[in-house]
Amino acid sequence: MVSLADSGATVAPKKPTRRAGALNRFLMIVLMTIVAIWLIVPFSMAVLWSLVDPETGWNYPDLLPPSLTHLRWVEVWTTTALPQAIANSYMLAPTVAVVTLILASPTAYCFARYDFAGKGLAQLATLLPLVVPGFVLAIFFSSLIFSLGIYSRFLSILMAHCVLFLPYAIRIMTVSFGQVRQDLIDAARDLGASPLAVFRAAYMPALLPGILASLIIVFIQSIEEFAIAFIVGAPNFTTIPSILYSYLGYNFIRPNAAVVSLILVVPNVLLMLGLERLLKSANPAQTGVKG
């Protein structure tokens, strides 16, 4: 796969020639086949497992499940805390993503556009949340939060998640702010543009991909995070990963795990397709803002 894509890279010219166009098509077909195998096969296995009839099971040497039913889906939906967990997770994650971005931006701006003594050390320090193991962080974070007298589960997880995912947002936004071109800012200022206009003309095109990348990354991390959501959130605030852990851990039941996995993944993938479109439209190369 490396060599295939590599040769693709070497022939991607500014305006595709016919030869390159044909090659791109060929590469695309090859790549899509590989990707189909690496996405479609695993997911269709999961779909099959989620439809296995508990009466007959699916055991070796049956090549396919002897009978299919949607009972698992009904059972998982009605006997677990899944519906509430989905609501919780999808309320929490977007909030975390936005708040984290707001907290991260000033620091990222500072890292990208100012030089000061101890900058390297400061950048290093932003990585601290990444090197504290999840459960250690969760336990002492909950102690900390309780001792501060904060009992709102939502607020507590929100705070913890923001701190935990700030490094991603800061790192990504630092890269973005670094790509803002000073000559564009100067030019806009020289033309007498208002600060807002300067921001829209010079900053926004370079920042938008970073903003979206940061929102996406933090959103995914928050949806997936287990240790804090469980320790700080229990018992009333259940998120999807808590349920998933239960189904993939002690209670591992392959068909039910398949149901929960699919419920967890499908909205994510749809979301990604939408965001990918956004990301693409925000691409400076496409919106005509060129250097």
């Binding site: 967990a85 459960f135 309780f146 229990a234 018992p235 009333n236 808590s242 851990g249």
Partner: peptide, 24 residues
């Protein structure tokens, strides 16, 4: 209410919360 959770997770929560007036 029977929350989802692991064996150790539950016990750690219990240990971590022991000084709250009212735990969960």
């Amino acid at each position: 209410v029977i929350p989802e959770g692991t064996h150790e997770g539950n016990i750690e929560k219990f240990l971590a919360e022991r000084n709250r007036d009212a735990g969960d």
